[in-house]
């Protein structure tokens, strides 16, 4: 036994295990379970039927109980495996249950009621993924609409953010004009003004513009991100001014310089901002919650919250739709996580 332990915990170089090594692996493995576990459990649960979800203790795999339509009964009856006194097993359907005695019938011979002690029977179950959880919210509820709204907000807001932020960053990095430092100060100051501080007046501005219950009311206030302007400006400062001078010699207009020279050279920073913006806008909650009060304009986040806040939470639908809401962000995580982590480590913004 100790040999095996020695083998398992042997370290390269054979220096033996310092307590910090043990702790490191405890922290990493623990982190793996704690960080991914909850989301995986949610995905796992989203494939279960309402009946399976109500079960305690819950099973790992999604089971459904088998049912059969029996002659003489309107509703489908649940099937059980019943152990007979002689040890043989047969499948019966339950008609009703009275205390510890179940009244059952043989589906092949529905005339005769058989009384069975409930200790002698187990539900007949099979593994089945409840894909209905994913289909129904799109067909019977408005989730398709919410999904479309979310995609619209995310795509449009990101495009406008990239355009306005890069234009502003270009002006702030490549031109000398009066008031430039004042503008920079103003943008720095915005960092101090989170949404929660200007909720009421911003709401009145949006209402006055007739943007209440409009997706544009969600999009517009978010596009002038100070972090985006900063990030792009820092990047553009590294582009040599000689390029611009040369272009001016060749009679390029300022707009062409911006569009043809600066923007392509800023592509890496733009890509990082685009990733950030997509995640930000997809995840936005408080502001859409305030601006959108009609179901037709809900985004996924607001719609999910509304359904989850109802008195009778239909968890099987909520879980499936939460998974759908997670998908874009998980894709970003899998394919683009590296850009984000290096972006944050480099600039400390989120």
């Amino acid at each position: 036994m100790s040999r095996i332990a020695e083998f398992l915990f042997r370290r390269r170089g054979g220096a033996g295990w310092h307590w910090t090594d043990v702790f490191t692996w405890f922290w990493l493995i623990g982190g793996l379970i704690v960080m991914f576990g909850p989301a995986l459990w949610l995905v796992n649960s989203s494939f279960k039927t309402p009946a399976a979800l109500a079960e305690f203790p819950p099973t790992v795999l999604p089971y459904v109980t088998a049912e059969a339509i029996v002659e003489g009964y309107e509703e489908p009856l649940q099937l059980f495996e019943v152990r007979n006194d002689d040890g043989s097993v047969r499948v019966l359907a339950e008609v009703r249950r009275l205390g510890t005695v179940a009244q059952m019938v043989d589906p092949a011979n529905p005339g005769e009621i058989i009384r069975v002690n409930i200790r002698n029977r187990t539900p007949k179950r099979s593994i089945a993924f409840a894909l209905d959880n994913y289909v129904q919210p799109f067909l019977a509820f408005d989730f398709f609409l919410y999904l479309r709204n979310s995609v619209f907000v995310t795509v449009v807001a990101t495009l406008i953010t990239l355009l306005t932020n890069s234009m502003a960053a270009f002006a702030l990095s490549k031109y000398n004009f009066r008031g430039r430092s004042a503008v920079m100060m103003l943008i720095v100051a915005t960092l101090m003004v989170p949404l929660s501080v200007i909720l009421v007046p911003l709401y009145s501005v949006i209402s006055a513009m007739g943007l209440f219950n409009s997706l544009w009311g969600v999009i517009l206030p978010t596009v002038a991100t100070p972090t985006g302007v900063f990030m792009l400006r820092q990047y553009m400062l590294t582009i040599p001014d000689e390029l611009i001078e040369a272009a001016r010699m060749d009679k390029a207009s300022e707009w062409q310089i911006y569009w043809r020279i600066i923007l392509p050279l800023t592509a890496p920073a733009l890509a990082v901002l685009a990733i950030f913006s997509v995640v930000w806008r997809w995840n936005d909650f408080l502001w859409p919650l305030i601006v959108l009060s009609r179901k037709e304009v809900y985004t996924l986040q607001v719609g999910l919250n509304t359904y989850a806040g109802e008195l009778n939470v239909q968890w099987h639908y909520i879980l499936a739709m939460t998974v759908v809401t997670m998908i874009p962000v998980v894709l970003v995580f899998i394919f683009l996580q590296r850009f984000i982590t290096t972006g944050i480590a480099g600039s400390g913004l989120k």
Partner: peptide, 15 residues
């Protein structure tokens, strides 16, 4: 491992 700990950061607050 860095990504493991970073994963929830991207999830929406509602999720």
């Amino acid at each position: 491992w860095r990504a493991v700990f970073f994963f929830p950061v991207l999830l929406s607050p509602v999720v």
